[in-house]
């Protein structure tokens, strides 16, 4: 019977909470930090939800019954590298935002604001 590990549950929950909090901020850099933390949380969740800790999944070094499940490890491994790639992309985004606006903040969408302020009645000329 698989046992649930309370410590890891608290860690994953905590990392998720901090990540989500940072994601809700205005500062682009904080959002990137939040993204990285959420990535950690997701990888841990993926790994540990797959099964309990065990020996390394190398044939010949451990009996198969003692091994940790290798499949979530393989998935998490690519996830780690992809998180890295996407994080650098987000960094480049926030750098460009800084270059153009001299702010690294999430701006509100101007077009959406304009629609929100629009008159109740759409232009008659569009409807005939």
């Amino acid at each position: 019977m698989t046992l649930s590990n309370v410590t890891l549950a608290v860690v994953v929950g905590g990392v998720y909470a901090v990540g989500a909090y940072l994601l809700l901020q205005r500062s682009l850099m904080r959002i990137v930090f939040g993204f990285v933390l959420l990535g950690h949380g997701a990888n841990l969740l993926l790994l540990v939800a797959g099964g309990p800790a065990g020996r390394s999944p190398l044939l010949g070094e451990a009996a198969p019954a003692e091994m940790a499940d290798p499949l979530p490890q393989a998935m998490a491994l690519t996830a780690v590298v992809i998180t890295f790639g996407v994080t650098t992309f987000l960094l480049a985004l926030s750098y460009r935002s800084w270059l153009i606006h001299r702010r690294d903040e999430v701006q509100d969408d101007v077009e959406d604001r304009r629609i929100a302020r629009r008159e109740e009645h759409p232009g008659e000329e569009e409807v005939r």
Partner: peptide
Amino acid sequence: FVGGFFLLAAT
């Protein structure tokens, strides 16, 4: 929520 989910998912 995630912590609770974690505990259930592992079992």
